[in-house]
Simulated assay, not measured.
Amino acid sequence: MAGLTTGGPNVDVSLLYEINGLARHAPSGLDRAVGLIGEYGILLALVLLVLWCWRGARRQDEATAVETFAALVWAPLAAGIALLVNIPLRELVGRPRPFRQHAGLEVLEPGLGKSDFSFVSDHATLAMALGVGLFIANRKLGFIGIGLALLEGACRVYMGVHYPTDVIGGLALGTAVVLLLAPLAMALLTPVVRAVARSPRVGRLVRAKDRVLARPVGLAQTPPPGLTRESDLAA
């Protein structure tokens, strides 16, 4: 802990200089692109992945759709909890931003006034929480989400606003919150989502317009051939 507050291990600082040094030799347009991607783009892409997963889940069978939708609800909730956990953690460690301790860094966010503490990275925490939460809902899209979270961490170091260990800590925090609390969260969210799915008003949040939930066993799904009116059935 003391090593973090005084600038981190030498390998941490050397990796910071090596990764951030790439920005010094890269075209300015690339640096601006990485800055935008690292600050907003990857998080936006993760949100779009969650929405895409939700779109596909609505066409699954009822039981699978409910589980998937519950996981998709848990992903942003877990991300929010992870950020809340990070508030006292950052104050406890009290590690300044790298550009406030080390000269010669190419900072790609000079106008944002990053005066808060560095460990752990909020962006890495948020991105990994969304990625792992998405993995619970959909393995294929989850791998993409986790890959985006790793890219987010690399961007934060490239931008000169975080040490590598800040990013590693954020990735670990986001993963831990999602996985450790997932059993309880899913147990609480699944009944709520199931009730929403069966609601005539808001059920289409979970099921597509053309999908009809299965009726209880013993009730005919469709009338026999040639019987189309209630009077026919009664006869």
Score class of each variant (00 low, 15 high):
Val85Glu: 07
Ala149Pro: 10
Leu188Cys: 12
Pro223His: 07
Asp61Thr: 14
Asn20His: 08
Leu36Val: 11
Leu15Pro: 09
Phe99Val: 02
Ala182Cys: 05
Ser28Thr: 13
Arg215Asp: 04
Phe99Tyr: 07
Met186Thr: 06
Leu30Glu: 08
Ala195Leu: 07
Phe69Gly: 13
Ile136Asp: 08
Gly8Glu: 00
Leu22Asp: 01
Tyr40Val: 15
Leu43Asp: 13
Gln221Trp: 13
Gly145Ala: 02
Ala235Leu: 04
Ile146Ala: 02
Glu91Gln: 09
Asp31Asn: 12
Arg24Glu: 06
Ala137Glu: 13
Ser231Met: 04
Ile81Gln: 04
Val192Glu: 05
Cys53Phe: 01
Leu36Gln: 09
Arg198Cys: 10
Val11Tyr: 15
Val93His: 10
Gly8Arg: 00
Val157Gly: 12
Pro98Met: 08
Pro224Gly: 07
Leu108Arg: 09
Leu188Met: 10
Val178Ala: 10
Pro191Trp: 11
Val73Phe: 01
Asn86Trp: 00
Ile144Leu: 11
Ala234Leu: 14
Leu44Thr: 14
Pro76Glu: 01
Leu189Arg: 00
Arg139Met: 07
Gly113Trp: 00
Pro88Phe: 03
Gly170Pro: 15
Gly29Ala: 10
Leu181Asn: 03
Leu105Asn: 05
Ile81Thr: 13
Ile81Val: 14
Gly142Cys: 03
Ala182Phe: 08
Trp54Asp: 01
Ala195Gln: 07
Phe69Leu: 09
Arg211Pro: 12
Ala182Val: 09
Gly169Met: 15
Met128Cys: 13
Leu189Val: 05
Arg215Gly: 07
Val11Ala: 14
Pro191Ala: 07
Leu48Gly: 03
Ala185His: 04
Gly131Thr: 11
Val85Gln: 05
Arg95His: 11
Gly145Cys: 02
Leu105Gly: 00
Ile37Arg: 00
Glu106Arg: 09
Pro225Met: 06
Thr125Tyr: 05
Ala75Asp: 05
Asp116Ser: 14
Leu150Ala: 10
Tyr40Ser: 15
Leu171Ile: 06
Leu173Cys: 10
Asp210His: 10
Ala197Arg: 05
Leu126Glu: 11
Gly35Glu: 03
